[in-house]
């Protein structure tokens, strides 16, 4: 009998070794991809990864605590507009203006999330009521952007957001297209891994217990409202980081980075990638956006149809997300037997 557990342990270990090496290979491929696929495709992947950060932020909130925000584009947009306005409207030297914009965009989004989150969460608003209020937040933010058009550029958006600069031998130089790709890639990887590490231990268990039954977690001594507020603000900060980096790498911010379609897409990315898996939503975002490009290049009208189809698939075929499904398939190839094999 004593043989079985040790066997299972070694097979789990070899399984995770395969998974880790596969992920590393994939990462390496992503890092060298722009050298082969060209700058245009690379910039596409870069933007997709930044939307992936928004999905990651939403997953931290929705996947880990079960609280669904239907206005996460607001935080992405607040980051993007914050960064764009600060770096273009105050006549600052772009070498540090871009960095100040990045910081300012994140802080701006953080502030909105704190104010909205404080009153909602400590006011006891939960479940679908919370979702509806955040939906309203998304609608309001579009109106705000259109109303204050002298700062936001209104429908036309803001142009000429400077890219981030780094010190080189001959002073501050803005990042090249390739440099931006690698910088974004590294940031997204670091944030995703960081969030995964954060949510893997006791803290993850706590969040799951709040999702399961907030009242019980509270009766065990946890200040659940405070935890939810921290998660809400944290998820807004991650989305804003994506938005601010998006502004500085694309150079343009328009209403499509705050509107309702983007909020809906964020939810779809998380649903397809697998709620609560953190890595899944980021991967799903990149894949879906790549698919969008391919499909739209055949016929622009096809994409909404595909999007709907994907969502139906997500609900019926892989309700736990593609990542979980892939994991299940992977286990079929390399089965893990016995009680030690926890998926």
């Amino acid at each position: 009998m004593s043989q079985i557990p040790s066997d299972t342990g070694s097979s789990t270990r070899s399984r995770s070794r395969v998974l880790v090496s596969l992920s590393l290979l994939f990462l390496l491929a992503m890092y060298i991809a722009p050298l082969y696929v060209g700058v245009y495709s690379a910039s596409l992947f870069r933007d997709a990864m930044l939307f992936g950060l928004m999905a990651l932020g939403l997953d931290y909130l929705w996947g880990k605590t079960g609280v669904l925000s239907f206005g996460h584009a607001t935080f992405f947009g607040a980051g993007a507009y914050g960064a764009a306005i600060i770096s273009t409207q105050f006549g600052m030297d772009p070498s540090y203006g871009a960095w100040l914009g990045l910081l300012g965009g994140i802080l701006f989004s953080c502030l909105i999330a704190f104010i909205v989150g404080y009153f909602l969460i400590f006011g006891g608003v939960r479940g679908s009521y919370f979702t509806i209020v955040t939906l309203a937040l998304g609608v309001i933010s579009v109106h705000v952007v259109l109303t204050f058009s002298e700062y936001t550029g209104g429908d036309a958006g803001l142009l000429g957001v400077p890219p981030l600069s780094f010190p080189t031998v001959d002073g501050f130089r803005p990042l090249s297209q390739l440099g931006q790709y690698w910088f974004v890639m590294t940031t997204v990887c670091a944030v995703t891994c960081g969030m995964w590490w954060l949510c893997s231990g006791r803290y993850g268990a706590l969040l799951k217990s709040i999702e399961d039954n907030e009242q019980r977690a509270q009766a065990l001594g946890h200040n659940t409202s405070l935890h939810l507020l921290i998660v809400f603000v944290g998820s807004a900060v991650i989305a804003a980081l994506g938005g601010a980096l998006y502004a500085s790498s694309v150079g343009v911010v328009a209403t499509d980075s705050v509107n309702l379609i983007l909020s809906t897409q964020a939810i779809i990315f998380v649903a397809i990638g697998g709620r609560g898996t953190l890595f899944g939503p980021v991967l799903a975002t990149v894949c879906v956006i790549w698919l969008e490009q391919e499909v739209s290049s055949i016929n622009v009208q096809l994409w909404p149809l595909f999007m709907g189809l994907l969502f139906i698939l997500a609900v019926f075929v892989f309700p736990d997300g593609v990542l979980k499904r892939a994991e299940a398939l992977f286990s079929m190839i390399r089965p893990v037997s016995g009680p030690g094999g926890r998926a």
Partner: peptide
Amino acid sequence: VPQGRGIFPKLTVEENLLVGLRS
């Protein structure tokens, strides 16, 4: 300890106990 147990079914036994340490 509420009626009907009130454990967290999606957490492991150990995680259930860890969550109880807060107080």
